[in-house]
Design a protein around this nucleic acid. Sequence first.
DNA 1: ACAGGTCATGTAAAGCGTTACATTCGGCGT
DNA 2: ACGCCGAATGTAACGCTTTACATGACCTGT
Lengths: 346, 346
Amino acid sequence: MGSTTKIRDVARLAGVSTATVSRAIHHPAVVTKETRAKVDRAVRQTGYAGNAMARNLRRMETRMIVVLVPNIGNIFFSELLSGIETTAADNGYSILIGDTTSDPGRARVFADYVRGAQADGMILLDGKPPYFAAPASGLDGQAAAANQPPVVVLSERLPGYDFPTVCIDNVAAARGATAYLIGQGHRAIAHITGPLENILTAERRRGYRAALHAAGLPRPPGYEVTGDFSIRSGRLAMAGLLAMARRPTAIFCSNDEMAIGAITAIRAAGLSVPGDISVIGFDDIQFAGCYDPPITTVRQPRRLIGATGMALMADILAHKTVAGGDRVLPTELILRASSGKVSAAP
Amino acid sequence: MGSTTKIRDVARLAGVSTATVSRAIHHPAVVTKETRAKVDRAVRQTGYAGNAMARNLRRMETRMIVVLVPNIGNIFFSELLSGIETTAADNGYSILIGDTTSDPGRARVFADYVRGAQADGMILLDGKPPYFAAPASGLDGQAAAANQPPVVVLSERLPGYDFPTVCIDNVAAARGATAYLIGQGHRAIAHITGPLENILTAERRRGYRAALHAAGLPRPPGYEVTGDFSIRSGRLAMAGLLAMARRPTAIFCSNDEMAIGAITAIRAAGLSVPGDISVIGFDDIQFAGCYDPPITTVRQPRRLIGATGMALMADILAHKTVAGGDRVLPTELILRASSGKVSAAP
DNA sequence: ACAGGTCATGTAAAGCGTTACATTCGGCGT
DNA sequence: ACGCCGAATGTAACGCTTTACATGACCTGT
């Protein structure tokens, strides 16, 4: 009982060869019932646990998937992760989470995990291409992809790369949300965006603009304010909007946290939601429905996105087929109390 | 450029042995500047990335830590994870997250990761002992521990086991919160607990009871209601309390989500917080301060707990010393608008 | 100029389990 | 009764890297 038990020890105790022990454990069907019993007993007696490093090396797989996420602490991603984890487990995979908030350099470390066969594939939630991938360029895209580890992109599209992707139609969803506000009679609708370099941000803004344009509404300067998806940034952005000469009557926020921040700021200014100003969020995080007032928002099927993405990854790893094409999952505008008809013009 | 580049290919290209390549990469100091340059060039040319499985096997370590968490989707844990991740990265480790919500059987799978050397250590956030560990029993505890993979327990204590632990003093914190309510003149204070089998729940309840006892207050039947840490359970529990003949004037909730649920229920009944009923939560999750009203709560240093725990783990792995003793981190009662002086008795 | 020492590099042996291939045994068909 | 076939097990190579030890070259001090 000195150090760990090795397969040899089990074999000796069971009176069989190491090959038989391995078979009894991994392919029980090919050994006799008696042999299996002997091995099982020896395994229990020794507390043998195999050695994953050796097994991985031999099998040339780790059944581990790297998931690159901008911020685990963010509830939006943590629910997405939860969907990924569940499906991963169902397929015998585990997920290795890489948080890139604190240090963008971590992205490289985790990309190297896949390149170094520490993980079998990589799922990207941060909307940034892995450093080792070159943009798809027609013909040699296929050839180049052949030697690259499998990558699946979730939640945002990566323009210029042709990784399999699971996402929603951000443009349409944002357009729908804005159109709803217009339908409620709002004419002065502002937009609090995410960070500008963010693809998601750009898409949602595009949808917002498209809706205004379709309704023939102007886009007054200053009506698009940049936030960073945090509650605080929503509050600050809203404070700026409240100070404007022509104050908006409705705000479309690029996520729910900023909507919460916006509502806080509106109330701090002595105004009411939705009495004076309507607010719409995006994502439908759990707290959106429990806030006071409950927040109108665009629901994203987070768990489904995660599950679909992981299923896709498992499929690619199993069949080695890169099933192209984006999976676009549906969104839903959830109407709650934070939005309503425009009040009499101020 | 057929399959992946191996160290042999790099060695050939650089005109040195594989040993030298390995040294040039991992111990640059011991090779000549010229050799290093040759190797570097060959590495860049071939895009060599090493093979982690082989390296792990040889080094007998994976620099990976399993973290067992009850629910990644829960914001409390995701922030704890964030603290762990950051410190892990600083120490050259990565974390492998195991979610046990969906399937408690996963706990076994992940415990086997450590046993099978797929991971170097395990951090437990779910307050449940790993299946392979026997309760500490005096003398042989040390001996048994020697062959076990390192385990660190965070956030809750595991009575009967002597794993290194980073936690808060739940009893004292709960007592403090309850005592504060008593100080505000409340005499009818109810408690919404977590799941009963939960150690945390038991500790906080103990603190609650202790405070009542110290103040000579009775514990009316039905004043302790069991929840499950979800918003919904807080709402339901509160609905039950509101229906009681002698309605409480203050509620101490075992976490913030249940406090939010409680507030929702109180308002739905046409009462106000804190006008009619004061509510206190626990944890100080991000949303507690942004809720309307902002929630009085006990702040736990989540990131610090995670960081301290991971640092402890790194220390154990580096020095092989099992530094015993619990690290008890301080909590803080954050006074906000959801609680106040007792109103005129009903 | 030679012994002894240092430094850089090469050689080859682990590290542990899996699996292709070889072997043995028993049974069955003719 | 013999040969063939299939099933069960054993043998040994292999996966890729790291590192202890060996080797060789070069330098220094006497």
